[in-house]
Design a protein around this nucleic acid. Structure first.
Length: 316
DNA sequence: AGAAGGCCTGTTCAGGGAGA
DNA sequence: TCTCCCTGAACAGGCCTTCT
């Protein structure tokens, strides 16, 4: 029912389920966009950045756990991994059928990370990775693997779409940004994620297996959603001039560029979104920022023009 | 429910330019 | 040369959001 097979390494057995999907397609990446997406305090050298911008080195990760609370009592019982392969996406799910299989799935994760050392997650900086770090430490035998870079898409997604859709949960992004229909799967039969721990405990007690099958399915959709999101973000940010972004998306991109210190690019994008139909409060913010950047670039004529427009508009 | 990254806002301070 | 003002950087504190 889980569609997996028994695998073995030096710490013992575990269950692994493997699938390949033709979508989402491999994501294109470049160093400029990656620099924008990595958090401001990530200090990669140019060489490390170039290496990290190779999607062949990316390992998408999403874990299912026995709870949200960190600490020693929470296990990552299912480690979902994905990478691009043969024009599509390969998914590998490492599952511990009992607590004594934890060492073997952690070792497997460490091996995968050695092959693909760029970690891609959604909220993984706050949730998945600290929890896994904790689990590695608890083994006292397997060193916490190092990665070359950690690309957490939650924060870029929030910057890009919060204005447009409010909540930027992965499922909301799939529905309103990526387009659930075009993704090729539906969340209609998805489980309620708050019941994930309960399904695992049922499995451990041997009560029911269909709940845990739902968890596997949920995890695969999260990984595919994450892959699709990565593709979408990289496409959007690499086509700043000629892309077909929504006005609010464009505003969000300019704001992102501005905060990352890319002033000239930010100004061009502010100007581009001002030529589109923006809600008035956002248009005012865009005008104000564009004016500030124009002044900074000593384009006083344009800065004055924008401030005059602001002064003559009705809002205070 | 717990953790933590990042954003937002406000404050402080240093440095540079203009004017007396 | 001194003073004042403006700007930008740095920092702190509070808040929000996401994950299972």
């Amino acid at each position: 029912m889980l569609g997996g097979e028994i695998a073995r390494n030096r710490y013992g057995e575990f269950l692994v389920a493997r699938q390949w999907y033709s979508s989402p397609e491999r994501c294109g990446a470049d160093t400029e966009v990656l620099r924008l997406l990595l958090s401001a305090n990530s200090e990669l050298t140019e060489w490390e950045l170039q290496r990290a911008a190779d999607p062949e080195k990316w390992l998408l990760l999403d874990t299912e756990t026995t709870g949200l609370v960190g600490g020693t009592g929470t296990y990552a019982f299912l480690i979902g991994l994905a990478w691009w392969e043969s024009g599509g996406i390969r998914i590998e799910q490492l599952f511990m059928r009992d607590h004594d299989e934890e060492h073997s799935i952690l070792l497997e994760l460490a091996d995968r990370l050695a092959e693909r050392p760029v970690l891609v997650t959604f909220n993984g900086k706050c949730f998945d990775w600290p929890l896994l770090q904790n689990r590695f430490r608890m083994t006292r035998q397997i060193a916490t693997p190092a990665f070359a870079a950690h690309l957490d898409l939650l924060h870029p997604a929030r910057q890009l779409w919060r204005l447009q859709i409010g909540s930027v949960r992965l499922t909301e992004l799939e529905q309103y940004v990526l387009g659930a229909e075009s993704l090729g799967w539906s969340r209609r039969n998805d489980i309620d994620s708050s019941r994930i721990p309960e399904f695992y405990f049922e499995f451990l007690r041997g009560v029911a297996i269909d709940g845990i099958a739902g968890v596997f399915h949920h995890n695969r959709m999260d990984l595919r959603g994450l892959a699709a999101l990565a593709g979408r973000i990289f496409r959007m940010l690499s086509q700043l001039e000629g892309g077909e972004q929504e006005p609010l998306e464009l505003y969000a991109i300019s704001h992102l560029l501005n905060r990352r210190g890319e002033c000239s690019k930010a100004r061009r994008v502010y100007e581009r979104c001002l030529s589109m139909k923006l809600p008035e409060p956002i248009a005012r913010r865009a005008r104000n920022e564009a004016a500030r950047l124009a002044k900074r670039e000593r384009d006083f004529g344009r800065a004055t023009e924008l401030w005059n427009e602001l002064a003559s508009s009705s809002e205070p």
